[in-house]
């Protein structure tokens, strides 16, 4: 591994950590502003925030300040410690996800050999936080929301992992950097100029991954755990101020992370056609390419979110177990066969 600068391990890690810490709020800011504020507004013939700062860009800062100013309220019956910890657990899961997301040959916090495995494992941590929030709020709506979230996230973790399996089999590695490299050096029927983005060979897996990610992120049509019009916010019904902000950030931070995972695994990641995979310049250009791809994926996530109604819990479970999981298993079998044949 060639490093950009020859720094001691602790300094390098410190810089990376600081960057990652700064990146998470920024990414959720970008997503919220671009999609939640502006795109949704345009889809509804509105303008969205446009008064604070140029084109309303500073609206988010104002929102964050508003949340920080609010009183920190606990319900009287709440299990205080758990109640306070829940948003932190959820946010921690988001933070941990960012550790393995590569933005260049070396622009990654920690290049784990089992990166995919780690990402899947860590992303399911958030269920714990949501369950904690749902339970500790001492609210029936929150409890229903928490339980729904638990059921849903477990149901959708499976197709998510199984969809990724196809990619892993094709790339022959669990390392996210390895997957990028496999796509960069891959060839489509001998034509290697654009590499082989796995979306072409693993299209079914990509679809399943996106659907399952939509459910993981509790975005419409799978947003039953929050379901404003039924559960009035579900597990975070009792959260106000800063703690709600944490949930909010986690939601959009995770959306960003999943979009990043999708673009790494299916869209070729940070690699730009024409460059060498080890080229140092990709450490500079890579993040830009990644951002563009991520925004493209996130655009679809949010487009679906703003258009569709939500399913019912039982329908969601049926869909996961009867459609997605068999499909993804079939995909694995097919990928395996092709892998052996070719």
């Amino acid at each position: 591994m060639t490093t950009l600068l020859a720094l001691p391990y602790w300094q390098e890690t410190g810089i990376k950590l600081g960057l990652a810490l700064a990146v998470i709020p920024t990414t959720s800011l970008i997503l919220v502003y671009l999609f939640l504020f502006k795109m949704m507004a345009f889809m509804q013939s509105r303008l969205g925030p446009n008064d604070t700062g140029p084109y309303g860009t500073l609206q988010l800062i104002a929102e964050a300040i508003k949340f920080l100013q609010k009183e920190d309220i606990h319900p009287e019956q709440a299990d205080r410690r758990v109640f306070r910890m829940a948003p932190v657990v959820v946010l921690a899961s988001t933070f941990l996800l960012y550790v393995v997301l590569p933005a260049g040959p070396d622009a990654v916090v920690q290049n784990l050999d089992t990166g995919v495995f780690y990402a899947m494992a860590v992303s399911s941590l958030s269920v714990l936080g949501i369950l904690m929030a749902g339970w500790a709020s001492a609210n029936k709506y929150a409890l229903l929301g928490g339980l729904r979230a638990a059921g849903q996230l477990i149901a959708y973790e499976l197709p998510l992992i199984l969809a990724v399996m196809g990619v892993v089999i094709q790339a022959e590695t669990l390392n996210l950097q390895g997957i990028v490299e496999a796509q960069a050096t891959g060839e489509i029927f001998g034509f290697g100029a654009i590499g082989n983005p796995f979306i072409l060979t693993q299209f079914i897996a990509f679809l399943i991954f996106m659907i399952a990610a939509q459910a993981e992120l509790t975005q419409t049509p799978f947003d039953m755990p929050v379901a404003e019009t039924e559960l009035v916010g579900g597990f975070h019904i009792e959260y106000t101020g800063f703690r709600f902000l944490l949930f909010f950030m986690a939601e959009f931070g995770t959306a960003f992370a999943f979009a990043a995972l999708a673009s790494v695994m299916f869209l070729g990641g940070w690699w730009i056609p024409g460059f060498d995979v080890d080229d140092n310049i990709l450490n500079v250009l890579g993040p830009g390419v990644m951002l563009a791809k991520i925004l493209l994926v996130a655009f679809f996530i949010f487009w679906v979110r703003f258009t569709y109604p939500r399913l019912r819990e039982d329908q969601l479970q049926k869909f996961a177990w009867k459609v997605l999981i068999p499909l993804s298993l079939a995909n694995i079998v097919l990928t395996g066969i092709f892998k052996v044949v070719f």
Partner: peptide, 9 residues
């Protein structure tokens, strides 16, 4: 429908 509306806006 939503994309069209966004475009029109």
């Amino acid at each position: 429908v939503t994309a069209r509306t966004a475009g029109r806006t």
